[in-house]
Simulated assay, not measured.
Amino acid sequence: MNASRSFKALALAGACGAGLALALGAPQAQAGPSDAWSQVDPADDHVQELARFAMDYFNQRSNDSMQHRLIKVLDARTRVLAGIAYKIDLLEGETECGKNTTTKEESRRCPLKEGGTRRRCTAEVWERSWENFTEVRSFDC
């Protein structure tokens, strides 16, 4: 295969992959190499949903007696990796709700505790939407 055909095949494959990502509801990212992270809109509804999913993961694994909730998504990036990996920088805070007194949905609406902890964290979430698979790979504050 000559260089011109190789480039056309890669361009077509890239266009098909972008179309698949759009069809699956993934936010549009700026173009770049597949091993590089690409910026996405932190206000995107899907990014917000994944940030809340990561906070649920944090609350399940935290030893804190109080629920924590998402305050704001600060930055978001994606890369294609046998699915889509999201790296989400977020601000989270301690709420007035105890862990044993609220459901997951209620904890997302709990008021923030005055003087409670606030932290900047980074969550990495891996998603294969065609398999209905979402996993938090890491959550670091």
Rank of each mutant, 00 (worst) to 15 (best):
R5Q: 15
M1G: 15
E92P: 00
G32I: 08
R109C: 00
I88E: 04
Q67L: 00
V80I: 10
C141W: 03
L50F: 02
A54T: 11
L112R: 02
E135T: 11
D75G: 15
G17T: 12
L12D: 12
A123R: 06
V40I: 06
A85F: 03
F58C: 00
E94W: 01
G17V: 05
D41W: 06
R119H: 03
L81M: 14
G14C: 14
D56F: 01
Q67G: 00
P111D: 08
W130C: 06
K99G: 11
L24Q: 14
I84Q: 10
D56A: 12
Q30L: 14
E124K: 13
C97M: 10
W37T: 07
F7I: 13
R118E: 03
N63Y: 08
V136S: 05
I88V: 13
A18E: 09
K8P: 01
E49A: 15
T101M: 09
W130T: 10
R137T: 08
T78N: 10
S6T: 10
R61D: 02
R118V: 13
T134K: 15
S4Y: 10
K104P: 07
M55H: 05
S4V: 11
S65G: 02
T95W: 01
M1P: 11
C141D: 03
G98M: 09
M55A: 09
F58Y: 12
A18S: 10
